[in-house]
Nucleic acid binder design. Sequence first.
DNA 1: TGATATTTGTACTGTTTCGCATAAAAATGC
DNA 2: GCATTTTTATGCGAAACAGTACAAATATCA
Lengths: 194, 194
Amino acid sequence: MIARRGRPPAYDREAALMAIAEAFRLRGYAAASLDEIARAAGMNRPSLFAAFGNKKAMYLAALEDYRRRMEQAVSPALEGEGPLGDALTGFFDAAIGFYGEGAAPGCLVLCTATAEAPADEEIAAALADTIRGIEAQLTARIAREAAEGEAAGLAQLMVSVLIGIAVQTRAGADEAALKHFARASVAAALRQAL
Amino acid sequence: MIARRGRPPAYDREAALMAIAEAFRLRGYAAASLDEIARAAGMNRPSLFAAFGNKKAMYLAALEDYRRRMEQAVSPALEGEGPLGDALTGFFDAAIGFYGEGAAPGCLVLCTATAEAPADEEIAAALADTIRGIEAQLTARIAREAAEGEAAGLAQLMVSVLIGIAVQTRAGADEAALKHFARASVAAALRQAL
DNA sequence: TGATATTTGTACTGTTTCGCATAAAAATGC
DNA sequence: GCATTTTTATGCGAAACAGTACAAATATCA
């Protein structure tokens, strides 16, 4: 038994991180105050600092956590055995559902890190890595059925469809229209590739 | 002769607005301070307020001006007489060039308004209007050669390609790769539509 | 030249912000 | 029960911020 020695934390780290991400998603990095974030996480500022470091460290941790949860939500659709079209449609449906959750729809990374990227290298790197990660997942799945060169191009197009969904969700597009758009995009992309 | 009566302004309104937009593009709405903006525009804060109102009014004016300049840069490509493929390729090339300019590449609207949209209705409206405007322009051009239903879907896909370009420019993608991507996307989209 | 109108520049105010210092609270180990 | 360890809570301080007041500057009009 490795009994922890002092006063036990009153917060759950994972839940707190989710609340932090949600606060940043609602207001953006710069506009979100630490008071606001602390309130959302149910912690006081000193506890917040002790747990996650300063504001930028909190944001980077939230970006990483959000990205992880996003991958968890969408990758099952790509890992199944069905045809490519179904996989891509499932991928976009999962993304639309994930982006639509919460009080501030839209992707935390694609809709808030873009504002800070030019002024901060680490945030820019997190943004670029997230996009590259999604592209790699899509390329791997598409390459199972398309020629090599074609898979890369098709994956890039699907990445843009995803980014478009993220931004348009932020702009108030409704879920049904986005799902329709995703289906049409998959159909258009596959008609030429396969 | 309508001679203005008092001390003449030391600034040029159009140039100042461009500088303001550039400052917001570099740092985002919330992080850009009025001192910074005033320095960029070559004005003092009181003159800035007198000319453009408070910070949010400045931002909204910058968004509108940026959108106008963007349309000015890309619409000639859509208005020519050539085939649709050339028109779309020209459109994307112009957009890539426009987004690539300045110290903070990426679209002011699509990369900074997204962060503030959930917390501010007017900014959200400006974001949505900009996207709708682009979509309308593309739809009008595509409808000249494609069936009605098809034109709308194709235009939506092209909007996502543009949003993808805006965000990926922000994430550090280089111009040559983006131009290649744009060509591949146009080819993929047209192969099925026409 | 003097009155009027408009812009500029300095300086100020009240508020918000981040980050931390310090003491109280709550657990374990002896 | 007492010392130790870790978290919580209150509150502080220095800096940055948005917006404005007011006087100096620079133009036109009579």
